[in-house]
């Protein structure tokens, strides 16, 4: 129980909030590394997923890449990349990027594929081009599933970015790794709390984002009948009426 007091004292110590090893900078490093990985991961996987979902071509590739990506442990990726890129960001970033692509690719491809074909045909009947179909029909309707995929990726990345400290990187994992090295439980637990809180915050951020981005017409549908498409539909949070 005295650990709680020690951890509280650790958070209260102003020296832990200053400079490069301070909480604000480590939080910034963590958010920066995770954010960039999710951003680049989305930039790669989203267009690919949309193309595969829309054309129906390359689905095998998407599934293979996704399964492969999920089977690779992040820690071993870190150690493999370490031998090529050295310490810190250069190694942590590609390892995290590899983590973001499978969920985003899968959710996008499945989200688009599962859009009611009648809707797509109706659009086509109205004379929409393929790009218009994708942008105005498929993308808006698949968006809940796509965002759920990005959220899964983001939460995983925030949790896994902790490992960057093992290859000499920054981020909140520093407190945990250094806490072990120094046998200082206050630092260790404090770091663990910060990582957990950041992961929860990320989860909530995407819930809010989802609420904002999903088209109003779809919201009513979702509210009455939650979308039951794709593997990520379940983790999509209930939309408040």
């Amino acid at each position: 129980m005295e650990l709680i007091g020690e951890v509280a004292a650790w958070f209260g110590d102003p020296t832990n909030w200053a400079g490069t090893p301070g909480i604000p900078n480590r939080m910034f490093e963590h958010v920066w590394l995770s954010g960039l990985a999710v951003l680049v991961g989305t930039a790669v996987a989203l267009p690919l997923g949309l193309a595969i979902g829309h054309t129906g071509r390359g689905a095998f590739l998407a599934v293979t890449v996704a399964n492969l990506g999920r089977a690779l442990p992040s820690y071993s990726l870190l150690l493999i990349f370490f031998t090529f890129f050295g310490i810190g960001f250069a190694t942590a970033f590609p390892a995290l990027l590899a983590l973001t692509i499978p969920p985003i690719l899968t959710s996008t491809h499945i989200g688009v594929k599962e859009v009611d074909r009648d809707m797509v045909e109706a659009g086509r009947g109205m004379g929409m081009t393929e790009v218009q179909l994708l942008r105005r029909v498929e993308l808006p309707m698949a968006l809940p599933v796509i965002i759920a995929g990005i959220r899964t990726a983001a939460v995983q990345v925030v949790a896994t970015a902790t490992l960057a400290a093992l290859v000499g990187g920054g981020g909140l994992g520093r407190f945990i790794v250094d806490g072990f090295a120094l046998q200082r439980d206050d630092r260790l637990v404090g770091g663990a709390i910060l990582v957990a809180a950041l992961a929860l915050a990320t989860e909530r951020l995407f819930t809010v984002l989802e609420r904002r981005l999903i088209s109003a017409g779809l919201r009513a549908v979702v509210a009455t009948k939650p979308l039951s498409v794709g593997p990520f539909a379940k983790s999509g949070s209930p939309i408040a009426p």
Partner: peptide, 21 residues
């Protein structure tokens, strides 16, 4: 509330973190 607090912390830390360092 937790998220807002953390986000605010993270955002302000972005600026102050680097300047602090």
């Amino acid at each position: 509330a937790t998220m807002l607090a953390l986000l605010l912390g993270a955002c302000t830390s972005g600026g102050s973190g680097s300047s602090a360092s």
